[in-house]
Design a protein around this nucleic acid. Sequence first.
RNA 1: GCGCCUGUAGUUUAAUGGAUAGAACAUCGGGUUGCGGACCCGAAACUUAGAGGUUCGAUUCCUCUCAGGCGCACCA
Length: 585
Amino acid sequence: MKSELQKLIYKNTGKKAIIEHPVDMEHGDYSTNVALKTRSEKSFDSAQGKQEARSGNPMELANEIVNKIRSAGMPEYISKIEVVQPGFINFWLSQEYLANQLEGVLKDKDGFGKLTIGKGKTVVIDYSSPNIAKPFGIGHLRSTVIGQAIYNLYNFCGWKTIGDNHLGDWGTQFGKLIYQIQNSKVKIPLQGKQNLTIEKLEKLYVDFHKKVEKHPEIEDEARKYFQMLEAGDKEVRRIWQACVDLSLKEFNRIYDLLGIKIDYAFGESFYEDKMAEVIVDAKRKKLAVESQGALIISFDELNIPPGILLKSDGATMYFTRDLACVLYRQRRWNPDLYIYEVGSDQKLHFQQVFAGAVKLHYGKMNQFVHVAHGLIRFPEGKMSTRAGKTVHLDTVLDEAIKRATKIIKKSSTGRGMTVKQQEQIAKAVGIGAVKYFDLKHQPETDIIYDWEKMFQLEGDSGPYLQYTFARTRSVLNKIKNKILNIKNTDQILKIKNTLNSEELGLLRTIYRFPEVIELAAENYSPNLICNFLFDLAQKYNNFYNIHRILGGGDSEEFRLALTAATGQVLKNGLSLLGIDTPERM
RNA sequence: GCGCCUGUAGUUUAAUGGAUAGAACAUCGGGUUGCGGACCCGAAACUUAGAGGUUCGAUUCCUCUCAGGCGCACCA
């Protein structure tokens, strides 16, 4: 509809107009400021020496435009156009049009909101990417949850989506870990039961960094172990593999709990044998130069530090691996877009990788996007694995589920449920709360870690949306035996004739869902979906509180249709966010 | 030191250069056993860190200052 309006304005003014939803619905469904914009253009024109005077008064111009539209015959989807100070043109959609949209929701069901804008295009999304041998921390929740939402969004927009979990399973950090294992009492048995845990691995890593403070020379020892790993030393390799296996088991447990499934998990080690080609290629293209004993690609022209392909000891860097990774993805999928959902502390690194990939002709700059999410910080400072200052995700999820359970037990809505049902719902609700808390923030801003707010079950929260959905289901279940006849919503409207403001408000919100999807995908901002769904749920609950749905007389059928559509949109939106929608809660 | 990012009610935050800066939490006051109270309505609370500038119009763009965060070749 937005594009229709844009065309309409273009036809009558020759301008590409900005069409927006007025913040206040009193100002209509759509609004444009084209008439206001011409004022600055006029001064631009005269600066160019064009004397031709345009009518300088935005109000007059706006009226002129509106008269043109009217005399050409108003499109049937518009019921009213208005010009207001200082020169806005506001449009109201007709009830027939809105009713049609409602029908669309009920007809398209789970497919409502699906777009085709990505048809034929492929996107690779790099997300989650936890580090092996460290517990899944709360810091990686952001990448996982936002990345998955972006994945779902692009998929919904018609893109071919490929998710890759770029596990941190290679690098000097393993040298450190293996050094520490070899120099402690920890044993990795050749076979049989493994008594190593991920917490122990984390402790070893912390121990190493404590030791470094007194004995800086062990850093060199650690680097040697990484060299040995790259050289294929059997024992070192075996220890590494044990750490990887152990970590993957733990990660999969977390992913199961979160309901996340990522298409691929190649990890950094996958590119071990693919880096040589990049290095040769960079040398051949005269991009790789030696500097201070290391092999680098310089980015002087961008005013950023060089990327290091090979350290002076001959070992590779993650810069090298990420370039090999781009090359691999390009060959395998030839994607139109690469999205990296990684923390903002790695901005510079991705600038270097993208610049390097462009120089090597692996892609064009506009194909690479780093969705840099802000960090989760303690009020007193940064989280740090090295210092052992982390929050483990599983403790957070456990607590969330515990709190949801408590509410279910207390609430009357939980009555008549089996213990097993209650457990399932508590899981959906608790995890929904944590995910939503993360997703509702703009990705780029930092989040101050707030133990209480993460579990919020009221107000602007995941459970509020889930609750509203369950409410719509509850109403609809009561009339299961009656067939909901919503084939002709505009006919229902005719019988009803007038809508109250709550009904109209819902109607004027629901149809916007596909626009929100597009905007959220374009801006890599799942939080826009959160905003929209919360607004919709608030409107529905207000409507629900004031008006009877069942037993609503002439209005019953229409209100049922509204209820079904609201539930459907909530469900579609939440599922894009990766949040479950239990029928009851 | 240099570069990038952020600064909005007590707290967490929203707002493609537009209309009275919108919510949630917390606080205070209300809502006939109700189609699910994990809900709804209302009140109080923001000179958008500060100072300039561009613009008909600035939370948004530019400059400076202040505060915080992140990063700055052999970690990832």
